[in-house]
Every structure is written in structure tokens, then in C-alpha cells.
């Protein structure tokens, strides 16, 4: 027990020191860049609902989808972000984002059990729109590396929250709660789609 505590302390202390070093080394901008990237996907409801919905839908699809979808989404979203940054145009980005909330929300509501490859394509296509929006709005005044790290971690955490909520599907009442959450997500997506939000 003492050994375990000592090991954890040994790991925690250098990590704490390391965190201040990272901030110190990279100079002005890393914190702002990280914060900007981290909060960017979290402060937009249209993004949040879609990312949480990915985790929720994965819960209905079960393994391996519950884990594969959160692997696919950041990868494809980063590709979309890269396209946005270098100025490759993508039509109807905002519509695509809003539609992702509606579609993913409805897939959760009806607990649709699509084949894995179909689910991956649906999630991947919507991830392109989300990534493109973030890439286009990339604030050039901030540290780019910090932004990239914060952006991916922020997005990933949203997925993990969705997956965590999705575990409620192991009980009957939890399943109803998750499906009701899907209805809320679809409604939020519809509000953005039809200009109410």
C-alpha cells in the first residue's frame, strides 16, 4: 500500500513540475492557444450535442463501435479542420453541423443498430463539417500547437462524456434516459438547422 502511494507520488510530483515547464518553455500563447482550442468545441452547443451523441449512439451499437466511433471522429474531424485552415471550401458547413445533431439524435432516439462501417461513414462525414468549422475559425493570434492539443482533448472529452452517459443503457430506465437525451439532441440540432438558435 505504502509502495503504491510512493509510486503515485513519484509520478505526480514530476508531472506537476513538468506542467509548469511546458508553459514556461513555449512562452506566451500556449495557455491561450490551449484554452482557445479546448473551449472552442465545448462552448458551441451545436458541436457539443453532436459529439455527445456519437458516444451515446456508440453505446447502443455496443463493442467495438462504442470505442471505434470516438477513434474515427477526432481523426476525420482533424482532416476537416486541416481543410478549413488551408482554405479548402466546403459547402453548407453550418447546415451539415446542425444536421449532424438532428441525425445523430434521431439515431439515438430510435436506438438504430447500423452496421459498423455504415456508422463509421455517418460519423466520419459529419466530423468533416465540425472540423472544417473549427479550422476556418482557427484564431491565428494564439499558439497553434496549444490550440491543436486543446481542440483534440476538448473534443475527445465530449465523446467520453457521451460514452459515460451511454453506459446507462445497461438498465431499462437508463435506456429511456439515453433515448430521451437523443430527442433533446435532435431538438437542439433542429433549432440550429431552422435558425432558432
Amino acid at each position: 500500500m505504502k509502495t503504491k502511494l510512493a509510486t503515485q507520488t513519484c509520478i505526480a510530483i514530476p508531472l506537476l513540475l513538468l506542467s509548469s515547464l511546458v508553459a514556461a518553455h513555449t512562452g506566451e500563447g500556449i495557455n491561450s492557444g490551449f484554452a482557445s482550442g479546448f473551449w472552442h468545441p465545448i462552448l458551441g452547443w451545436d458541436h457539443v450535442v453532436a459529439m455527445v451523441a456519437v458516444g451515446l449512439w456508440g453505446a447502443f451499437l455496443g463493442a467495438p463501435a462504442i470505442w471505434l466511433l470516438p477513434v474515427v471522429f477526432p481523426l476525420v474531424m482533424a482532416i476537416g479542420g486541416a481543410l478549413g485552415m488551408i482554405g479548402v471550401p466546403l459547402p453548407a458547413v453550418e447546415t451539415g453541423i446542425a444536421l449532424s445533431g438532428v441525425v445523430l439524435g434521431l439515431l439515438v432516439v430510435f436506438a438504430v443498430r447500423a452496421p459498423l462501417w455504415v456508422a463509421a461513414i455517418i460519423v466520419g462525414v459529419f466530423a468533416i463539417f465540425h472540423g472544417h468549422a473549427h479550422g476556418t475559425e482557427f484564431p491565428t493570434e494564439f499558439n497553434a500547437y496549444g490550440y491543436a492539443v486543446g481542440f483534440v482533448i476538448g473534443t475527445g472529452l465530449m465523446h467520453l462524456i457521451g460514452i459515460a452517459i451511454g453506459f446507462l443503457t445497461r438498465t431499462d430506465i437508463g435506456t429511456y434516459i439515453v433515448r430521451a437525451s437523443g430527442a433533446v439532441i435532435a431538438a437542439v440540432g433542429a433549432a440550429f438547422l431552422f435558425g432558432f438558435a
Binding site: 470505442w67 470516438p70 477513434v71 474515427v72 477526432p74 481523426l75 474531424m77 482533424a78 482532416i79 479542420g81 486541416a82 481543410l83 485552415m85 488551408i86 479550422g135 482557427f138 491565428t140 497553434a144 500547437y145 490550440y147 491543436a148 492539443v149 481542440f151 483534440v152 482533448i153 473534443t155 475527445g156
Partner: peptide, 20 residues
């Protein structure tokens, strides 16, 4: 694997930064 996907996503964005 999820951690690896996050690293891949970060590096894709860093790659794009080289062209901005």
C-alpha cells in the same frame, strides 16, 4: 488506441499549420 487517435488528430492539425 483512443490516445493514439488523439495524437494523430493533433499531428494532422499541426501539419495543416505548416501551410497557414
Amino acid at each position: 488506441r483512443v490516445a493514439a487517435s488523439w495524437l494523430a488528430a493533433m499531428q494532422i492539425l499541426i501539419l495543416a499549420f505548416q501551410f497557414v
